[in-house]
Design a protein around this nucleic acid. Structure first.
Lengths: 182, 182
DNA sequence: GTCTATACGAAGATAGAC
DNA sequence: GTCTATCTTCGTATAGAC
C-alpha cells in the first residue's frame, strides 16, 4: 500500500484526537494544548496545520456537514411529500449517529454565524428547515426550527441513552410538530 | 428619600452592566474587564463584590430564577390539568420577557451542572418539566423537554422579532408537543 | 469596608531557529 | 514541518492604600 504523506498523517491524527476530545469534554473546555498533548506534538504544530482553534473545529465538523449536504441533495430529487419524510428520517439518523458532535454543535451555535468557515453549515441548516416544513409558511418554518433545535438539545441531554430510545423520542416530537408528516 | 449605600449601588451597577453585556455579546465573550470598563471601576472591584465571573452570572440570573420559582410554586397549588396550563402560559411569558437572558441560559447550559451556584435553577427546570408533562411517562417528559429546549433556542434565533409572534410560535409548538394542553 | 495596583497561571496565537 | 520562545488577554488572587 502507498505510504501516507507526513502532512496528511499529522493532520488526520490531530482531527481524530480533536473529535474525541470535543465529543467528551466539549469544544470550549478543550485547549489546543490538550489536543497537542494527545497527538504528541506542540501547540504550534496544531496551529501550523489548522487556522486556529475554529479551523480545527471546521475540520472536525466536515464529515457530518458532508452527510447533511448529501441528505439535502437527495431530498431535492424527491416530490415534496416524500422529501419531507426523507429529510426527517435521515436527519434523525444522522443526529443519532453523530451524537457526540451534535453536542459540540449545540455549544458553538451562538458563534456559528460569526465564523465564515461555517456559513456552509448554516446554509444547509436553512435548507433542511425548508424541507422539514414543506411550505413557506412562517409558523410551519418555526415548527421545523423548533423540531431541529429540540433535537440538537435532546442529543445532548443524557449522554448514555440507547439509540433506539433517542430515535423514538425524536420521531414522536417531529410527528407532533409537523402534522404533514405521516 | 434614603441614600443608597455605596455597596449596594456598586453591586447594582455591576449587575446591570453585566445583564446588558451578557445579553448582547454573550457570557463567554464578555470579560470581567468589559464589565469593569462599562461600570467605570477595576476588575478587582468586580471581584470584590462577586465571587468570580460565575458569581456575577448567578446574580444576573437571580431575578428570572425567582420568577421561575414563583411560577412553579403557584402551579403546585393547582389541580393537575390547570397546573399544566398555568406552567405553559407563564413559562412562555417569562421566556419572552427575559429573551436576552434566555440567550445566556442557552450558552451556559453545558456548564450549568458543574457550578453549584446554579443547582437551584436546574432543579426548578426539572420541576417545570414535570408540570408541563403532567405525567411520569418517559416519552411525555421527553416531549416537555423538547418543548422547553426548543423554546430556549427559539428565543435566541432572531433577535428582533415581535413579542407577539414569539408567543404564538411557542404556544403553537407547546400545544402540538403536549396534546393534553387545551 | 471599599477600592486600586500588581502579579500569577493558562489560554490562543505568532516569530523565528532548526 | 516541527519546535522553543514569546506576546496578549483572559480569569483569578492578594497586598495594601484610603
Amino acid at each position: 500500500m502507498a505510504a501516507i504523506p507526513v502532512r496528511e498523517r499529522t493532520r488526520r491524527d490531530i482531527v481524530n484526537e480533536a473529535i474525541r476530545l470535543f465529543g467528551t469534554k466539549g469544544y470550549a473546555a478543550t485547549s489546543l494544548q490538550d489536543i497537542a498533548s494527545a497527538v504528541g506534538c506542540s501547540k504550534a504544530t496544531v496551529l501550523y496545520h489548522f487556522n486556529g482553534k475554529p479551523g480545527v473545529l471546521a475540520s472536525v465538523l466536515e464529515p457530518p456537514t458532508q452527510q447533511l449536504a448529501a441528505l439535502v441533495a437527495e431530498a431535492a430529487t424527491l416530490p415534496p411529500a416524500q422529501a419531507q419524510e426523507h429529510a426527517a428520517t435521515a436527519f434523525i439518523e444522522l443526529s443519532v449517529q453523530a451524537r457526540g458532535l451534535i453536542t459540540v454543535l449545540n455549544e458553538i451555535i451562538p458563534i456559528l454565524g460569526e465564523q465564515p468557515e461555517f456559513s456552509g453549515l448554516l446554509a444547509l441548516g436553512e435548507q433542511l428547515l425548508g424541507l422539514l416544513a414543506g411550505t413557506d409558511d412562517e409558523l410551519e418554518l418555526a415548527m421545523a426550527r423548533y423540531a431541529l433545535n429540540g433535537m440538537l438539545a435532546e442529543c445532548r441531554d443524557p449522554a448514555n441513552r440507547p439509540d433506539d430510545e433517542l430515535r423514538l423520542i425524536c420521531r414522536t416530537a417531529m410527528s407532533r410538530l409537523l402534522p404533514a408528516l405521516s
